[in-house]
Design a protein around this nucleic acid. Sequence first.
DNA 1: GTTGAGCGTT
Length: 78
Amino acid sequence: MKLIVLNLPRSLSEADMANLFKTFGEITAFNLVMDDETGSSKGFGFVEMKNGEEAEKAIEDLHGKKIEGRRIRVKTAH
DNA sequence: GTTGAGCGTT
């Protein structure tokens, strides 16, 4: 199950993003998209969960969650 | 050194 997480604070690191999801199950892949202009993140990334049900739970639990004072968005990716 | 909906860079 591939997930996309939007509206992340640009200050958030790749490791921080992984920590949000790994509590729900095993992550097989993840990456935070970086911006060439600023060198910081573009504010969104992808997460690949091994178990689909755990991925769905991660979505329901993390979507709208406040991270660094900001509400994030989590959906299934293409 | 900023930005704020979205489906990808080292």
